[in-house]
């Protein structure tokens, strides 16, 4: 049960960093691991606070399916959209290769 867990280990931090796509150094993993215990304490402090009958709230407003009229509007030019890109080629975002990894 996660509630009884006292620590998140450096190995678990490595796994989470992997999921979050961040190359954490070994030093960072060691340093972050004990700091992450704060979330376990917070979660443990909420044990039994809300019963099964309490619904979850994801948002402060009960808004649903907010759509605007389907009317064409001005948008960014290609140059504007590309203005912050790290690399551009032929009016497109140039990115590193996406194939060839272990997957």
């Amino acid at each position: 049960m996660p509630e009884t867990q006292q620590q998140i280990s450096a190995d678990e931090v490595a796994h989470l960093a992997d999921l979050a796509r961040i190359d954490l150094s070994a030093e960072e993993r060691e340093r972050l691991a004990p700091q992450l215990a704060v979330v376990l304490e917070y979660a443990a402090s909420l044990d039994g606070v809300a019963g099964d009958d309490v619904p979850a709230t994801s948002h402060p407003l009960p808004l649903r399916n907010v759509l605007r009229e389907d009317v064409p509007q001005p948008s960014l030019t290609a140059e504007e959209a590309l203005s912050g890109a790290p690399a551009v080629e032929q009016q497109r975002f140039e990115v590193p290769r996406i194939l060839g990894d272990e997957q």
Binding site: P2, A43, L46, V49, V54, A56, T57
Partner: peptide, 14 residues
């Protein structure tokens, strides 16, 4: 156990 629990408490605060 984590995100869901927080959301329920959010209901109680409201």
């Amino acid at each position: 156990a984590f995100y869901g629990k927080g959301q329920k408490v959010r209901t109680l605060i409201q």
